[in-house]
Each structure stands twice: as structure tokens, then as C-alpha cells.
């Protein structure tokens, strides 16, 4: 386990360095911080002096080194719009996004596993065929369309659910959570469904395909020959083997969900990182953009590590922990 963690940390460091490099390059090329800082009345000489003072005339690599050194201290620059450290702004917005992704993942998990297993076990039944057909349609509809249709039906026509915002939130140890109020949960329903709609069809198809393959194997036939109940064969013998490839692919996909929050949050005016990111792009708030890139990159690394650990726990042939 120890060796695994060390290896993982080294890998994560390399990934973060690359992400930091890309982020810094973007920042370096985009816009002029001096122009952002000063007004029209400032003369060219004063600008040049400021430029020199800020170190903007230094070579690229020197500036990159400085950026890295600051990043180590948790300083990813200042957002000029919010007039605050970029990282602070992001940490304020992160809970909204993380809760949204969590809710969407939960929906994906709770729907795709039973539907995928059922349609693998009974591929010829009406429901299975319907689920497969619907999943093709689902894959092809873009998320903003799903979101708008959901808002139109459930918010505008039926008035069942609110159409935008996070609703009432409670602050728990600095974490603004919408999970603990009825209003917050109501606001969560439509955005999380819209977000989950991107990955749900993929997961259903993945689970179904893997499960069908597993059901054909010798060890499943052997399990039948041992006289086990169908419940045990499907839910223990087959499902556990189905999970392995699903976790590998699925883990990465859940990371991608974070990226998709940009669209969903915009449609629902959800005050999270994705919404903030689009606004930052419009305001060319480069420090905030870079900080977003780095934080999302870090989230990806964490998600993938967790996935690897879970995989090792389920698959006995992979030794995460040295036995």
C-alpha cells in the first residue's frame, strides 16, 4: 500500500506539473495584465515601469518558475474581477459543483446498474429493447437541450420544481450545502438529472455489454451446475466480474462529468465552478481560468486514484496492498 501511494503521488505530481505548464502558457499568451490593472490615463513609460516591476519582461521560463513557486504556496494569482485570490473564489464555488456532480453520479449509479443488469439477463424482453433504444436517443441529445426541455416541462408548465439557482443552503464548516434543506434538494433535481443524462446511456450500455459477456463464461455455467440460486449467480458471481471494466471506464467518465458542469450550470444559473468559469472567460479573468484548470486537474487525479484503489479491492489479481 505504501509503495502504491508513493508511486501515485509521483505520478500525480507529474500530471499537475503538466497541467500547471499548460495553464501558465495560456495565462502568458492571453491578454495583458498591465492593461487590466491600469486605466487609459496611464502613460506608456509608467506601464513599462510597472511591467518591469511585475517581472513581466522576464524570460518565459523564469516567469514559469515564479508561477510554480507561488502555486506551491497555494497562490494561483488574483482574480481581478472578484479582487480576491483566485483559489479562494474557486473554493467558494466548488461545493456547488461537487454536490451537483455527486448527485448526478448517484443517479447514474442507481439507474444504470439495475437497468444494465436487467437488460443483460433478459435481452429479449420489451423493457430491455426499450432501454437500449432510449439510450441511443439519450446519447444523441446534447445536454443543454435536455436541460431546457426539463425546465420547460417541470418548471414552466407543471410548476413542480424551480428552474434556476441553488435555493436555500446551509453552511456546514465553511461548506455551503444544499443537501440538507428541502428547497436545496428541490433545486438540485433538474440540474442533476440533466447532467446525468450525458453519461447514463453510456453506463447502461457498458454494464449491459460487460454483463452479457460475463454470463457466457465457463465459471458462470459452473455456478449454475453447482445449483446456486439465480440471484446469487447474477448479483455476486456475474456482477462482481462485470464491475471491473465498468469501474475502469466509469471512473474516468465521472471525471469528465466535472467538465460537463460548465454547460449544465450555465443553463440552470447554478453558482458553481462551471458557471464561474464561463463568466471568467467572458471577463478574460486569466488568473481565475488558470486556477480552475489546476483545481479541476487535481480533482481528476484524486478521482482516478480512488478508482484505482477500488479496482484493486475488487480484483484480487491486482495487488494494491502488499499481502
Amino acid at each position: 500500500m505504501f509503495a502504491f501511494i508513493i508511486r501515485r503521488i509521483i505520478q500525480a505530481t507529474v500530471v499537475m506539473l503538466v497541467i500547471g505548464f499548460i495553464g501558465f502558457s495560456v495565462k502568458h499568451q492571453l491578454g495583458d495584465p498591465v492593461r487590466d490593472l491600469v486605466g487609459i490615463s496611464v502613460s506608456v513609460e509608467e506601464r513599462e515601469a510597472l511591467r518591469q516591476e511585475l517581472g513581466l519582461n522576464d524570460p518565459f521560463l523564469v516567469q514559469y518558475g515564479r508561477f510554480l513557486a507561488n502555486a506551491m504556496h497555494g497562490d494561483l494569482g488574483h482574480s481581478f474581477f472578484f479582487k480576491r485570490p483566485a483559489l479562494d473564489v474557486i473554493f467558494d464555488k466548488a461545493p456547488a459543483t461537487i454536490e451537483l456532480v455527486f448527485a448526478a453520479s448517484l443517479i447514474i449509479l442507481l439507474v444504470s446498474v439495475p437497468v444494465g443488469l436487467y437488460s443483460a439477463i433478459y435481452p429479449k424482453r420489451f423493457f430491455s429493447r426499450f432501454a437500449m433504444g432510449a439510450s441511443i436517443v439519450g446519447v444523441s441529445i446534447p445536454v443543454f437541450l435536455t436541460a431546457i426541455v426539463l425546465i420547460y416541462i417541470f418548471a414552466v408548465q407543471l410548476h413542480w420544481l424551480p428552474s434556476y439557482g441553488r435555493g436555500e443552503t446551509i453552511n456546514i464548516l465553511g461548506w455551503e450545502s444544499g443537501f440538507f434543506t428541502l428547497d436545496g434538494l428541490k433545486h438540485l433535481v433538474l440540474p442533476s438529472i440533466a447532467l446525468s443524462s450525458i453519461m447514463l446511456p453510456l453506463f447502461i450500455r457498458l454494464i449491459r455489454a460487460e454483463m452479457m459477456e460475463v454470463l457466457e463464461t465457463e465459471y458462470i455455467k459452473y455456478a449454475w451446475a453447482k445449483g446456486l440460486s439465480s440471484k446469487r449467480i447474477w448479483l455476486v458471481h456475474a456482477f462482481k466480474n462485470t464491475l471491473l471494466p465498468v469501474i475502469t471506464v466509469g471512473g474516468v467518465q465521472l471525471g469528465i462529468l466535472i467538465a460537463f458542469t460548465i454547460l449544465t450550470e450555465t443553463v440552470f444559473q447554478w453558482q458553481g465552478m462551471g458557471f464561474m468559469f464561463l463568466e471568467a472567460v467572458e471577463r478574460s479573468d486569466t488568473a481565475l481560468l488558470v486556477a480552475y484548470l489546476v483545481v479541476v486537474g487535481a480533482l481528476f487525479v484524486v478521482v482516478n486514484t480512488v478508482v484505482d484503489i477500488i479496482y484493486g479491492l475488487i480484483n484480487p489479481t491486482v495487488t494494491v496492498a502488499s499481502r
Partner: peptide, 20 residues
């Protein structure tokens, strides 16, 4: 099955479930 009449399969590499 597996109680009064038990079966032994051909390839022992394939018959036991790898994750149990």
C-alpha cells in the same frame, strides 16, 4: 445440481470465479 449430481468441468483455469 451440485447436490445429488455434481459436475467437474474441463478447464480448471476457467471454471472457478476469479474474484471470489
Amino acid at each position: 445440481r451440485g447436490n445429488r449430481i455434481a459436475m467437474i468441468f474441463q478447464d480448471p483455469m476457467m471454471t472457478l470465479n476469479p474474484v471470489l
